[in-house]
Amino acid sequence: MADTKKADTTVNITLSSVIIDAADPESEGAFWQRLLGGSITRTPTHHFIQAPGFPVLVIQAAPGHAAPHWPDGTSQQLHLDFAVDDLATADRTAVEAGASRLRPTDAVPPDSRKGSRVYASPAGHPFCLRTV
């Protein structure tokens, strides 16, 4: 009879970074650094944003990158959700940093401190701000 006992294959896996493609890593990296804070380290092909409480966010140069046409078109490719304690303040911060509001633009009043909203980064990557 064959030994059916499995070897211990448990491994500790943690998220160390999130990589985002962008045709213009300078503007995309500057956007995420303004939104999340922290520091940015630049190389010719990558920008590394290190913000407190987040894994490293890496903006990778992708000269042929085309923004997704979501929610009304192709797949969104990547989606990040951020918990906030004040939606109105987070909304202003995101828009001032360069985000575009996607939806719902009218479901949550601009001065609301609660709810959620969907945005796109300058390279078109969708993300949400949601109250906790």
Results as ranks from 00 to 15, higher is better:
1 M>V: 08
34 R>P: 01
93 T>N: 13
75 S>E: 03
10 T>K: 13
63 P>G: 09
103 R>K: 14
123 A>W: 00
27 S>Y: 00
23 A>P: 03
39 S>D: 02
9 T>D: 08
27 S>P: 04
132 V>H: 07
77 Q>W: 04
52 P>S: 15
5 K>F: 07
123 A>E: 03
51 A>L: 07
12 N>A: 11
131 T>M: 00
68 P>Y: 11
7 A>C: 04
2 A>F: 05
39 S>T: 13
7 A>L: 11
87 L>N: 06
96 E>N: 11
10 T>Y: 05
84 V>H: 00
108 V>K: 06
103 R>P: 07
52 P>G: 10
8 D>I: 10
106 D>F: 09
76 Q>Y: 13
51 A>M: 01
58 V>T: 13
22 A>V: 07
102 L>A: 14
67 A>I: 08
52 P>C: 10
67 A>Q: 04
116 S>I: 04
123 A>L: 02
122 P>D: 03
57 L>Y: 01
100 S>A: 15
76 Q>C: 11
53 G>K: 13
128 C>V: 12
117 R>Q: 12
46 H>G: 03
81 D>Q: 08
20 I>W: 03
48 F>W: 14
49 I>F: 05
7 A>K: 06
22 A>G: 14
39 S>G: 14
101 R>D: 03
6 K>Q: 08
35 L>Q: 01
20 I>M: 14
55 P>A: 06
67 A>D: 06
11 V>T: 04
116 S>R: 03
29 G>E: 00
46 H>A: 04
90 A>G: 04
61 A>K: 15
89 T>E: 08
125 H>E: 03
36 L>Y: 05
18 V>N: 00
101 R>M: 15
100 S>Y: 04
85 D>R: 11
122 P>Y: 02
7 A>D: 02
10 T>W: 00
56 V>D: 07
13 I>P: 01
97 A>K: 00
119 Y>D: 06
63 P>F: 06
111 D>L: 07
37 G>N: 07
18 V>I: 14
108 V>N: 05
132 V>F: 03
45 T>E: 12
112 S>I: 08
92 R>K: 15
118 V>K: 00
117 R>A: 05
87 L>Y: 01
63 P>C: 14
53 G>M: 14
109 P>L: 05
117 R>E: 01
109 P>H: 03
71 P>I: 13
83 A>S: 13
21 D>E: 14
28 E>S: 04
81 D>M: 08
75 S>F: 09
126 P>H: 09
40 I>E: 09
